[in-house]
Design a protein around this nucleic acid. Structure first.
Lengths: 228, 228
DNA sequence: CGCGGCTTTGATGTTCATCAAGTAAAGTGG
DNA sequence: CCACTTTACTTGATGAACATCAAAGCCGCG
């Protein structure tokens, strides 16, 4: 937790809170709270009351639901800029999903009441929040549609490319999730995630060293993601 | 098209535009346009520039995408209160989905510029829009998650219950969609939609007369929707 | 009345989940 | 730090769920 006024230099300020005047920035700064989480920590728990507005400053998180049968379904794997606790925040009293840290993460938290107040008082701020929210839910929905129409090989290719291109920006990275979590994200079984990763390895599309993945033939992976 | 100022008595006024003052209502009223669509008409076309803010006053519509392979995927089947052209409206320049009328429908349209302006000027209005948007995308996402985890029988049961309980409020209704559209909505093939409907008929769960469906054993249907 | 789209059913094969069984890795308590 | 337990990972075999292909009847519409 850290309350010093470092918002001026925060990377996210321009994106989430542009067009605030000095006074507003100062107010936000004095009231905001930063939280640090370690890999695996729970950031938001399904069922919890929504009292705060949370956005991700650094790290990587997963959004997921525990369904009535006890199974997890991952809604989204989000990095800074993608995730703000937007889903439900303005429409529900309690969270209907959980958020945990996949990597060490830092969130910045504001009282929801204060955000509502600022939304009411500052029109440009309001439009900004609308835009972020629109973007966040759009990308979740489009992502789910894309995944749904693919076969298993295509889904695995898709998620590998997601990590390589969108999350890490390199073809050589450590998976931040277990095979089981991949399965929960793209709607298949753990065994088949493993099987298809192995297939990709024997086909010399990727190399696997435990959690470490190296993409060798990215063009083929892209083709599988498109066609499959 | 109809420009007389009947907004005062519009059912949707309280929901979408509560807390407007006289002047604002009058302004909205003089600038809004109503459009009537017949079953099958295109309301919004994928790729089209987003210049307006559209909400559904009466009727039933489907939101869908045409994917690169030419196949349709239905994102949502929405009734008044559920649908406002919210997805993307505040974040994209063009629509990345289409909307067509499943039943005769009436929309009410405002210039997007005007809505943005009002959002900036009237804080409560802004919060209201945020709430609607949050609700709309939430229910789409949760719906997709629910459908994804079900087997085909469960999906068919789910959508039949959706029409019976949420859309029409009766166990005896006309399907507003073809078997093919059901398939596109819940991610399966047309043949299997038909097959499972037939199964439900032989199991005496529903009666089928072409597009007309009568649910006989709603408890069993609910059980299938839950378990399947 | 004939054409194209929607619907229906059956036969077939593929894709995928489930079950089983074993290895590796990682956390836990003495 | 080591034995122990648990959790994650891996592979194979089997059957169920589902898509695809094929063929025919039906209905609305020009």
């Amino acid at each position: 937790m850290n309350n010093s006024c470092n918002c001026i230099s925060c990377d996210l300020k321009d994106i989430f809170f542009e067009h605030l005047n000095e006074g507003e920035i100062h107010k936000m700064c004095s009231e905001k709270k930063e939280h640090n989480y370690s890999k695996g920590d729970v950031i938001i728990e399904q069922g919890e009351e929504i009292k705060e507005f949370t956005y991700l400053k650094s790290g990587l998180v997963k959004l997921f639901r525990i369904e009535s049968d006890g199974k997890e379904q991952i809604i989204s794997i989000s990095k800074p800029m993608d995730f703000v606790s937007l889903l439900s925040v303005f429409s529900e009293k309690t969270y209907n999903y959980s958020v945990t840290a996949l990597e060490d993460s830092t969130t910045c938290v504001l009282e929801l009441e204060m955000v509502r107040k600022m939304t009411g008082e500052n029109g440009i701020f309001a439009l900004n929040i609308l835009e972020k929210m629109s973007k966040a839910s759009d990308s979740i929905i489009m992502g789910m549609l894309k995944i749904r129409q693919k076969h298993l090989r295509g889904r695995i290719a898709f998620i590998l490319l997601y990590f390589a291109e969108t999350v890490y920006g390199t073809n050589d990275f450590d998976l931040p999730v277990s095979r089981k979590e991949i399965a929960e994200y793209i709607g298949m079984t753990t065994e088949n995630v493993i099987r298809i990763l192995s297939e990709f390895r024997t086909d010399k599309i990727i190399k696997i060293f435990g959690k470490t993945i190296e993409i060798i033939d990215i063009d083929r992976l892209k083709m599988i993601s498109e066609k499959g």
